[in-house]
Design a binder for these strands. Structure first.
Lengths: 195, 195
DNA sequence: CGAAAATTTGACATGACTCAACTGGAGTGG
DNA sequence: CCACTCCAGTTGAGTCATGTCAAATTTTCG
């Protein structure tokens, strides 16, 4: 259970000894969600950041017309939550729910601060983690600005094959910022082009 | 010259004493760019992250058709650069140039690591800085997904009045992901609506 | 002043949306 | 086991927002 988190920390250049691992483990809480359950609901104050051990999540907003817009997915080895609400303790605009059964390790804001105080190199982990997230957002912004919907769909399939397999097409459409109907037509085009 | 950087560090919850300030100042390099000069050019390896003391920058890509797409602007008290290229030492896909005369404080990757080693609380500064950047990208992603072009334009004006005043309309259009012609029509509509 | 760039405008094309209907599969209860 | 419902996915027709191309106008700046 903890291995996947340690691997993630390790991959970002931070190595923990046993004492440090013990501190870390005392500050996270394991939780399992069934398919459809919410990790975060709109208008709540977000209490935890969640490291996903296994499963699939979606982070989305609901606009005035009731349309859902998926800001990001999450899966094994990723973090999910809302940093804004988590750090400011203000209400969140996001919903996060589970597309499949999902196991997470959760940490509260005070626990995170305690962790970073007691194990200062965790600051480096978070610095690197956030840096990678910025890089990913920046690339995504670039492709929304310069690519057509069919290109963005193809790119999504390349970049997130695991997620593509596990979520419904209308959710992919929502992530790409198009309607389910449009995605269906794009898929037909792509299929025809290959024959 | 250093005050604006210290204010920024302070605002993110990190207070430096004089010794620490001395270390920091020894690791940054001041540089001034004239309007039109490049801070970063496509295909280079990015050597510095730049803290903007004053001025305006744009970070953009150029697609196969020669169209420019502005990923982000920068101005007084913001950072600019490309974290991907800076940390991986691979070629960047971005161009960053100056829309007005711009003064920056630059730091190399080794200097940044040295700074974080010698002044560990700078890790907290960067963690918080990056966190805020993620929050901003996330909000921007949300509005590209759920808002119309006129709404996004209005939001841009609300959120970045200083930038709106200092950059050309076709650059704002590029940032919003629409053409200069479309923005012109949107502005006319908005002006008519107010009369 | 004069050239270059930015902005605006018009006419037309097109990609994506909306609304509505239909298909097909998964799950449910009689 | 079948009929039924529910939901995702697909398809069609019409509409709308935005893009494209081209030209006119205004602004900027050497």
């Amino acid at each position: 259970m903890w291995d996947i988190l340690y691997q993630n920390i390790d991959k970002l250049g931070v190595v923990l000894n046993d004492d440090e691992k013990a501190i870390l483990q005392s500050l996270f809480k394991y939780r399992k969600f069934r398919k459809g359950q919410y990790i975060v609901q709109q208008d709540d104050v977000v209490k935890y950041e969640s490291f996903i051990i296994s499963g699939v999540t979606r982070t989305y907003t609901v606009d005035e017309k009731g349309q859902e817009h998926i800001i990001t997915f999450g899966t094994d080895g990723w973090w999910t939550g809302d940093l804004y609400s988590f750090f400011t303790q203000k209400a969140t605009a996001y919903n996060i729910d589970c597309i499949a059964e999902t196991e997470v390790l959760q940490i509260t804001q005070p626990a995170l601060e305690e962790l970073c105080n007691k194990v200062p190199k965790m600051n480096i982990y978070y610095r690197n983690l956030y840096r990678n997230s910025i890089i990913a957002f920046s690339k995504r912004m670039q492709s929304t600005l310069e690519k057509s919907a069919p290109e963005r769909y193809e790119e999504f399939r390349q970049n997130y094959p695991l997620i593509e397999q596990r979520v419904a097409n209308h959710q992919i459409a929502s992530f790409l910022g198009i309607t389910a109907q449009s995605l269906s037509r794009i898929r037909r085009q792509a299929a025809n082009a290959k024959i």
